[in-house]
Design a protein around this nucleic acid. Sequence first.
DNA 1: CCCCCTTGTGAGAACGTTCTCTCGGAGTGA
DNA 2: TCACTCCGAGAGAACGTTCTCACAAGGGGG
Lengths: 373, 373
Amino acid sequence: MASTKTGAQGGRRRPTVADVAREAGVSVATAGRALGDYGRVGDALRDQVRAAAARLDYSPNGVARSMRSGGTRTIGFVGVDISNPYFATAMRGICDVARKEGYEAILANSDDRLDIERAAVKVLLEKQIEGIVVAPNAVIDVGHLQRAQELGVPVVLLDRHSGVLDADSVVIDNEAAAREAVSHLLRLGHRRIGMLLCVDPSESPELLRRAGTGRLEVHGAARPSIDRIRGYVAAMDQYGAPTAAELIRYTVVGEAAHLEREAEALLDLPEPPTAVFAADNVATQGLFTAVRGRGLGIPDDISMVGFDDLDWTTLVDPPLTVVAQSPMDMGRIAAERLFARIKGDDSPGERIILPTELIVRSSAAGRDAVHTV
Amino acid sequence: MASTKTGAQGGRRRPTVADVAREAGVSVATAGRALGDYGRVGDALRDQVRAAAARLDYSPNGVARSMRSGGTRTIGFVGVDISNPYFATAMRGICDVARKEGYEAILANSDDRLDIERAAVKVLLEKQIEGIVVAPNAVIDVGHLQRAQELGVPVVLLDRHSGVLDADSVVIDNEAAAREAVSHLLRLGHRRIGMLLCVDPSESPELLRRAGTGRLEVHGAARPSIDRIRGYVAAMDQYGAPTAAELIRYTVVGEAAHLEREAEALLDLPEPPTAVFAADNVATQGLFTAVRGRGLGIPDDISMVGFDDLDWTTLVDPPLTVVAQSPMDMGRIAAERLFARIKGDDSPGERIILPTELIVRSSAAGRDAVHTV
DNA sequence: CCCCCTTGTGAGAACGTTCTCTCGGAGTGA
DNA sequence: TCACTCCGAGAGAACGTTCTCACAAGGGGG
């Protein structure tokens, strides 16, 4: 005997305000007022209606309410990949703020693909969400986000900034963060410094090559990967260390295996780097694994600085020197900006830059002068 | 001059089917049919309507659609904490399946608090979601979940099973997994084996103590923590190793600092254990940190087996022997069950047990016979 | 030639809530 | 006592979509 409760069929018709009104012996209008706390209702009738509602186990229909009053009390978050701790933590921050405001959050993963992001935004708009936090894949091709704004749905950018879109963005100063990390290595005496990172698929190798040689100009300061390369180049230039295309290795997101191969390619260079800057958390893990696989000692054989202060960076031996940021704060602040917009703030889009911190631990050490080129 | 697009005010009225109909010079009914692909429309008029819709940049109002047709094409996931990689990965699995089905997912964090979970379920029901995946805090006090089922909203349990609720659940065999882990240590010759874990706040110490001595009887095989303790006790008994309350240390979730203290207490015992089983990923990290902090060698001074095969467990030295499960599969399978229910399957609730695997690496080693008690 | 069936279209109801409008009655001040 | 205000209550519209029903035109078969 199959339970009728387990599946979907068994849904008894849910009581409506009309049912409650009938039960309480009042009009629909009065029942609505008593339940919804609007308008004026007499105390006696209010209690009567409330009792009837309790008796019927009445629960309001949010869809109908949204239909009538326009607000869905729902926001959307379009992240790259929730299984990445960075976005998971950001989502946590967003949810916390949303809950405080009495909102819920719908999650969508874009996998760093613009078409998926576009489709997700479209669906979210159809669902009449009241705002979107998005980690955008493209910083120029933002028509779908502009459309959201035109429809009155505020957009807040997380992790990436767009020079084209007039929206709030919550970011870190990627260039400065990378510069600080690389400068740290340079000050320790390293001159031949490699860089390892993930880029998103839309990034052309050509673009990256130009970035690597410092001759990149992207409209309105763009995506983290490019900015971090810029910071790397700037630091190298400042200390008079030669840069070379062969020193910057990358792979597209989602292909961690390739990344490890790139790391190995770096180590196999005829003249291998004495230190490597891993510019994101995936690269940090890939580099660490590759170095370990080669049986190289950190920092004795090679120094490294990673990105993102994930739990494990203090668990490994040696604990890693990393650039730390706070995705939880990012999510929280992005959501706070979003709710300010939802409440009516229409000041020009603001670029909020959250601090990063170079946490010096033990994976980067000084280089003897004799070894320096 | 503030942009009117950034904030919320600037929302121009969105075009409706009526607007499209007027633009195309047809009736609302015909426009609706042409846009919604239902009923019969002439080819000429269909194109005419589509063109008009494109001209107006029409996008359907999902709330109105849901209102009329009942379905919101939205499901909910009530997890404990999305910033925990376990739930983040599960959420990823859920989202993937949902997307394939043309659904979106709303996320709520319960922080392992029953009141928050209850409130979340209530809100989700008001929002008329079509199904819920939940990692429930309580396995007996499930009235809110039963209510969902009665309203025709299917519920699938993730990570935990309830003997009371007739719902699908996707779990691992926690007792067997723990038994396997502890047996591994026992076979290596260890006899004095500690256990470290997190429990949720609703778990009384009294209950735990009884679990520790193997005299626990919980209605319908309950929560992971209890089951894992049971598995520990079973293995110890099987090998004739004495158990003792002092060997099982725990803390409530969300208090990682306390956890490390408990780990240290374990190490400071007059007669310290020669091996420890950390029964969840937080405990694994806490134990590893504490052992490291004491300058003890793994596995020379103390052996350990962890739980959950997080990335970092292969990055540390030595790589950790762990019990691995697949939260991604869990999420995916839970969502698949949910959609089967949504589509009408009303067979009795099924308990799906996913396999776990003891991944033997290098954190547990043999114990010389002479040292054995 | 008429009837019936098919096809294409329009009018209007329905979903469940909120909100505006109206109205009766009670209370108050002149 | 009358006019006015204020409060509580009900009737009904509105939100935007889908869906049922009715109807008109056209074609084919008897």
